[in-house]
Design a binder for these strands. Structure first.
Length: 332
DNA sequence: AACCCTATCAACCGCTCCCGG
DNA sequence: ACCGGGAGCGGTTGATAGGGT
């Protein structure tokens, strides 16, 4: 068992902070700084544990905290950072000046996560929820009629999004287009070029019944390919194709749908090649690029620049450079 | 007006990490 | 190498506000 919580000690207050307590904490930190959280409450005359004081200060009383609604840009940044960092709220907060990890975590759980789910996007993987596209539900659609309701359901299954998402005109248009191309492909695969029916749903369903298991598997793969294509073309375009860069990152960048590149700093190309050995970032859809800092930066005891985070990479002994910073590009 | 339900977010809890002895 | 304590992190809780019936 772990240690007893520090706030369990007799006489220590819990719960919401009063304005008087806030003032005591602010006054003390302004005078003495916030070195030792364990001794701070006693010295500041607070009946609180150090942990509670630290939390109150870092999440609420710190002067550089930005309050108010998250901007669109901040929200986009959170989503992008979350897609590569996961629930590393402190790492995400480190890239959003004035925002705390707690605030970002709350905002994620109450707003962004729900919004992604509504869009049919898995908030963990940031991909369309393929679990919604199961063969059994497609097979059961053999009894589809061509009513609007069933078409919507079918499209939503096809795209791996929730039915409501298909109400979006843009998604609806794309769903129709992708399903159409998928069914055309099926017809061509079967050599059935004369089949140009309006009932695409029954085309797809009939296909499963009329063909061999291998052909069904191929067709499933085709569907998944279409979904990937859908991902690349719409879900993450254009607003979600971005770089994640550190402040001051030297960027001469070009980006297209399936390719993102970054031009290295002039005369650093050779070093750039060497540096590839230092990277071990393994996100399948990401790529590491690097920035070199020729000037000294504040360093921690092990020599790593103190403003680096765990998401950064560090090469301790690069000839001619005191440090370098890496950043991640990714694409979908 | 009273009640219920949901959303929000500050604060807590338990755990891990890190560092010094 | 091991241990203990402090700091920090991420998950969760619970009080409260606000909207709906």
């Amino acid at each position: 068992m772990g240690r007893a919580p520090c706030c369990d000690k007799n006489g220590l207050k819990k719960g919401p902070w009063t304005p008087e307590e806030d003032q005591k904490l602010v006054d003390y930190i302004q005078k003495h700084g916030y070195g030792n959280w364990r001794t701070l409450p006693k010295n500041a005359g607070l009946q609180r544990c150090g942990k509670s004081c630290r939390l109150r200060w870092t999440n609420y009383l710190r002067p550089d905290i930005k309050r108010g609604r998250f901007s669109f840009e901040e929200e986009e940044t959170i989503i992008q950072l979350h897609s590569i960092l996961g629930n590393k709220w402190s790492a995400i907060a480190a890239r959003l000046p004035g925002r705390t990890d707690n605030e970002i975590k709350n905002y994620w759980n109450t707003h962004i996560r729900k919004r992604l789910l509504r869009m049919g996007i898995d908030p963990v993987t940031h991909s369309p929820r393929l679990d919604l596209l199961d063969l059994s539900s497609i097979l059961s659609s053999s009894f589809y009629n061509s009513s609007h309701h069933h078409q919507m359901n079918h499209m939503s299954r096809f795209l791996g999004v929730q039915p409501a998402a298909v109400m979006n005109p843009e998604l609806l248009k794309l769903a129709t287009s992708l399903m159409s191309s998928s069914n055309n492909n099926n017809s061509q695969q079967r050599g059935n070029t004369s089949s140009s029916t309006n009932n695409q749903n029954s085309n797809t369903t009939t296909f499963y019944f009329q063909n061999s298991q291998q052909e069904v598997v191929d067709h499933q793969n085709q569907l998944y390919n279409n979904i990937n294509q859908f991902q690349q073309q719409v879900l993450y375009q254009p607003n979600q194709l971005h770089e994640i860069s550190q402040p001051g990152c030297p960027t001469t960048t070009t980006s297209t749908l399936d390719h993102v590149s970054c031009a290295p700093l002039s005369n650093d190309e050779l070093v750039h090649q060497d540096l590839s050995n230092f990277t071990n970032f393994s996100s399948p859809s990401s790529q590491i690029s690097h920035e070199w800092q020729s000037s000294s930066t504040t360093t921690t005891t092990n020599g790593m620049p103190s403003n680096f985070t765990e998401a950064d990479h560090y090469a301790p002994s690069l000839p001619g450079y005191s440090s370098y910073r890496s950043w991640v590009w990714w694409w979908y």
